[in-house]
Design a protein around this nucleic acid. Structure first.
Lengths: 254, 254
DNA sequence: TAAGATAGTTGCATAATACCACGAACCGTG
DNA sequence: CACGGTTCGTGGTATTATGCAACTATCTTA
């Protein structure tokens, strides 16, 4: 993760030029491990002079104007560097920028969030060039660590967005391996949602939306009655259900 | 709208420093004029050397690291400069950044979209310091002009987002003056949606969501039967309806 | 072979909307 | 001052996707 070598306070030049804010890209990467939702966080270097040394932060960093063609390419690069995954579900989350969010001066960040299939999580973290990294479980609105910068805010926004979208999209499907049973799919929804769902309703919904395709003669065996194995009809495009799941009371903002 | 005085190709300094992308904020401002949805566009200066001279573009420009506290403040500043409106509905739309979207080099922009009440549109455009500006009608997915940079893409994203949100939120209410009749409210929805709605369903929806409050003994007179006048229960917070409007077929992406 | 567990189905209740029809209040005209 | 025309406002049934509950099916384990 690149870092400006001059971490001096102001980076404007002799400047008739406008002083320009620094720009970063951060990625909130979600995955399910042993039935719980996790985020990938990195521990910042303990170098003095660097802001928030030794603190947990979202993976990300400065845009490389030579390597990165555009914002999404930059996010994908960081994703690949950290997890090795090349084409996960990736969505722009929003951007945060202010005078004060980074002690080095005006910074803005473009935040993305990604959903990684469980398979790829087995490669937990290559201890790459950068510092430590680990999967941290989501607790409540975020995570039980203090995060660097405004990453707490960003993470909470990502969790809120994901939880909200579960209500009417098929996003949790992207947290599963290529093939899965309907029970596993339902569990993924429940994990993200933090609440149990009715089996019958869930299956009708999935069926009517034509989200999945049954694999002929493929069954998950070993645990009692064998379960039909399915795959997604579209590996990349999420499905939008006609109505939100859950009772109208539980739904609220954004 | 500020512009870097050195419009030379590269703006990195002597630089051990990382070369950093330029950052702008653009605002898609919507309003309803004589029954049609409009956007505010500005004509770029005809200065040679400037990219896209004389072309229509979204209002926006570079972040002022001295004046702007954060991104939203920057968007609000531009809104006020162009329209005089100080507290409209404002929502972050997304960000676009790439090596090629601005011929001067790596640029990224933070895009917002705003909904302005019809009253404030009477002040169409102060010909302020900058160049020409005008309200342009939305046709189809966007506007029938060629726009500078990737502003066509951004505008289309804004229109799509607005149209999508009409289905399940009360956003069009922010396009109306403080007080209005239910018919006017419905018309605002229809204007944005581009399709007619059933009166009975619409009113039940609005009623159940407790979106509006009736003003006792206030009626719009002059046109046949007087109509009850209402105001929003909350001037700032949108309401989320329990289900999407319209038949499930018409609904599709994002 | 019976008990337990997971998979999968069926039927009725519910909630918010679509669709259609009607009543209410005001405006113009003759 | 009756009467058609227009806009405002409401009420009734149909539709659709979900919630909820009971039931059957198939395998494992003892």
């Amino acid at each position: 993760m690149p870092t400006p070598s001059s971490s001096s306070t102001k980076n404007s030049c002799n400047s008739l030029d406008f002083e320009r804010p620094s720009t970063t890209v951060d990625v909130v990467m979600f995955a399910v491990r042993d039935g719980r939702l996790h985020v990938l966080l990195v521990k910042r270097a303990d170098t003095p002079g660097e802001p928030f040394p030794g603190q947990w932060a979202l993976p990300g960093g400065y845009i490389d104007v030579l390597k990165d063609e555009d914002l999404e390419a930059c996010a994908l690069r960081k994703l690949k560097e950290k997890t090795g995954v090349v084409s996960p579900y990736l969505e722009q989350l929003g951007s945060w920028g202010s005078k004060t969010r980074d002690p080095r001066g005006w910074h803005s960040t473009h935040a993305y969030f990604a959903l990684l299939p469980t398979a790829s999580v087995i490669t937990p973290v290559s201890g790459a060039n950068a510092s430590e990294a680990d999967w941290i479980p989501i607790v409540g609105k975020g995570v039980s660590h203090k995060l660097a910068f405004d990453h707490q805010t960003i993470l909470e926004a990502a969790v809120a967005r994901l939880r909200n979208k579960v209500e009417y999209t098929s996003l949790p499907a992207f947290l599963l391996p290529e093939t899965f049973t309907l029970s596993e799919l339902q569990t993924a929804f429940e994990t993200v949602l933090g609440r149990e769902l009715d089996k019958s309703s869930f299956r009708k919904r999935v069926e009517d939306a034509e989200l999945v395709v049954a694999l002929k003669n493929k069954f998950r065996e070993g645990s009692n009655r064998p379960a039909q194995i399915y795959k997604l009809r579209s590996k990349t495009a999420p499905v939008f259900f006609p109505r939100a799941i859950g009772d109208s009371k539980s739904r609220a903002a954004k």
